[in-house]
Design a protein around this nucleic acid. Structure first.
Length: 596
RNA sequence: GGUUCCGUAGCUCAGCUGGAUAGAGCAACAGCCUUCUAAGCUGUGGGUCCCAGGUUCGAAUCCUGGCGGAAUCACCA
């Protein structure tokens, strides 16, 4: 049993015996003892002071004495309102030996009746390449999927591709006008970038048309609607919705180019999906649902033919679901997608990893599904994450103020390679292996940089200062792992680890205990990370662990330790730390090399 | 303007279900490689936890009100 549960149970027994009524188990507050005091776990006494009507000091000593009766408690001390408990070293050595032998440590066993959960993430538009914001989305979604899986759930990763709409038509039109009938292969560029360039060309030309019109005295808003290019794009959208063969063919070709490009980026990011939904397929379902809602009079049609959901009695406004010309809007297809997914998977939970700019959208989506009578409407959960900002503010595609995903990946790899060479780290290994390690380090740096931040918060990325490889970074943790691998390899060469050793005769240093204690927390943190959908919790723990282990490594000999029991304990500690780092980083989607 | 989120060291971030003297990294400076990988370790300096009230034995954490920033409230996605 875990020590927290042992202590909590004993505290409850104490009060039961004394015939005091503990109103709520949460009054048993345990925390890690601060470094400056002696002990491992601290019980906060204040909640009991009132109950027992005694001074904190008296309460502390009575409880301390009682808890000392536990075989796991070595000693106690009371400082102010805190009871510091020192745990028997054999508890830690026993824990380390047991956990080191468990290759599933930190993972919840898969149960027969598992909850099925859907995680939607990525959800790109097919008119431009991915940027740093999308990277955050993809990494979060993928990592959260892994974490939920580690918590015993049956996870399905889904992607919803935004492959239709006016923005797609803009790229098609631009290609017809200025593409010179060329393909990405002709130009030697990735398909998504090729199409993205078309989009930029369109926006530029459109902008100057609008400017011209404004000069003639037209209002900005009117000019935006009257510019010849936008009219042409609209006409193309109309043709697309009417299944015009030539338009559909062009659409398929250009989207195909984009997908080829996305596939490369996804592969480099190491993310994958179990199923891909396409908006061009799901929006039909959305329309059908809206028609049904209209029949049931849950929704209403205005004189101009547009369809609305009236959410004013829910404290919100009216929401448009179909335009007056009958075409669908964003939320229409999201309604359809949700229904389709529920049909496909009957999931207990449907998570949407989408930026916090869409908080309102998802609030409305849930409510409308509920109004339409879907009893699973409350199974939707928006995992809302903050924006990635530049030092100058938010990224803006239209102003070219973006950090391109492929670009940043290339730069990271280049920097990692350069650094490896400078440090002479990868001498004497094959070119293929070198490439793999350098990529792992580069991606480790990028992924950790993004995932260590609380998802809810906006974060700042400064392109001028490239991502670090020292300190609180992915490579720092990877390096610790590589060191551990190297050490274990050497120890294996010198003799095998015995199965048993005397666990009780070992005296641990503070650093050894701290490492053990962090390892001890791992399963709890995996659980919390799953509950709160926050990979950052895992990132923070693994960093603390790596840092603590490095200090241990610096101060304590492992292989060279002459006391056999101690040596074996340290080897186990090392082995378990390596496992936990590897497992924890794995949950972030980060690979840990065996050497670097 | 309404609603929501955010404000912690020069910079990037932890800590937030209330607990002891608020922590890391980067940047700056000073040290440590004949010994298990120095992408490491050690030390120094750096704080009005935006402000003001309130609740409490105890507030960076909870509540109220300001100030500052962001998002959203589209027949855009």
């Amino acid at each position: 049993m875990r020590i927290e549960n042992i202590i909590t149970g004993a505290v409850k027994r104490f009060f039961l015996e004394k015939e005091f009524h503990l109103s709520d188990i949460s009054v048993v507050q345990l925390q890690k003892t601060r470094r400056e005091f002696k002990g491992d776990i601290t019980l906060v006494l204040f909640p009991f002071v009132r109950l027992m009507k005694k001074s904190p000091d008296e309460v502390g000593h009575e409880l301390g004495l009682y808890l000392s009766g536990l075989p796991e408690i070595k000693s106690y001390n009371v400082i102010k309102g805190f009871l510091n408990l020192e745990i028997q070293h054999s508890y830690w050595t026993g824990f380390v030996a047991e956990a080191a032998a468990d290759d599933q440590y930190g993972q919840k066993n898969k149960q027969d009746k598992r909850e099925t959960v859907l995680v939607e993430f990525s959800s790109p538009n097919t008119n431009k390449p991915l940027h740093l914001g999308h990277i955050r989305n993809n990494l979060l979604g993928y990592s959260i999927s892994l974490i939920l899986e580690a918590n015993g759930m049956n996870v399905k990763k889904v992607n919803l591709v935004n492959d239709r709409g006016i923005h797609i038509c803009k790229t098609m039109l631009a290609w017809q006008k200025w593409g010179e009938n060329k393909s990405p292969a002709d130009e030697g560029v990735k398909g998504d970038h090729f199409v993205g360039d078309m989009y930029v060309k369109f926006e530029k030309a459109y902008r100057s048309e609008v400017d011209e019109l404004v000069k003639t005295g037209m209002s900005e808003e009117e000019a935006r609607g009257e510019a010849p290019l936008i009219k042409e794009a609209r006409e193309m959208l109309r043709k697309w919705e009417a299944d015009d063969p030539a338009t559909i063919e062009l659409w398929k070709q250009m989207n195909g180019w984009v997908y080829e490009g996305f596939d490369i980026t996804y592969r480099r990011l190491g993310v994958s999906f179990d199923q891909i939904y396409y908006e061009s397929e799901t929006y039909h379902t959305g329309k059908t649902i809206v028609e049904e809602g209209l029949k049931k009079s849950v929704l209403k049609k205005k004189e101009d033919g547009s369809v609305w959901a009236d959410l004013r009695d829910r404290g919100l406004d009216e929401k448009l679901l179909l335009r007056s010309d009958g075409t669908s809007v964003y939320i229409t297809q999201d309604l359809g997608t949700a229904v389709l997914r529920h049909k496909d998977y009957n999931a207990d939970k449907m998570y949407y990893v989408v930026g916090n700019e869409q908080d309102y959208h998802f609030k409305v989506l849930s409510i409308i599904l509920d109004e339409l009578g879907f009893d699973w409407a409350d199974s939707l959960e928006h995992i809302s994450y903050g924006m990635v900002e530049l030092p100058s503010g938010k990224m803006k595609s239209r102003e070219g103020k973006v950090v391109d995903a492929d670009n940043i990946i290339d730069e990271m790899i280049e920097t990692a390679g350069k650094l490896s060479d400078e440090l002479g780290k990868l001498e004497g290994i094959s070119e293929g292996e070198r490439k793999e390690i350098v990529e792992n380090i580069a991606m480790g740096a990028l992924k950790y940089f993004i995932l260590k931040v609380d998802p809810k918060k906006n974060m700042v990325f400064n392109p001028e200062e490239s991502i670090d490889f020292n300190g609180n970074t992915g490579p720092f943790i990877q390096y610790t792992h590589a060191r551990i691998c190297s050490l274990l390899k050497k120890s294996a060469q010198q003799g095998v680890l015995p199965a048993n050793y005397d666990l009780s005769g070992i005296t641990l240093s503070d650093k050894e205990k701290r490492v053990a204690s962090l390892l001890h927390e791992f399963p709890i943190v995996v659980h919390e990370a799953g509950n709160s959908c926050s990979p950052a919790l895992i990132a923070n723990l693994i960093y603390d662990l790596a840092k603590e282990y490095n200090q241990f490594y610096h101060d304590h000999p492992v292989i060279r330790e002459e006391d056999l029991s101690l040596r074996n304990f340290r080897l186990h500690l090392t082995l378990l730390t390596g496992n936990v780092i590897s497992k924890g980083m794995g949950l972030l989607g980060i690979e840990v090399p065996e050497k670097m």
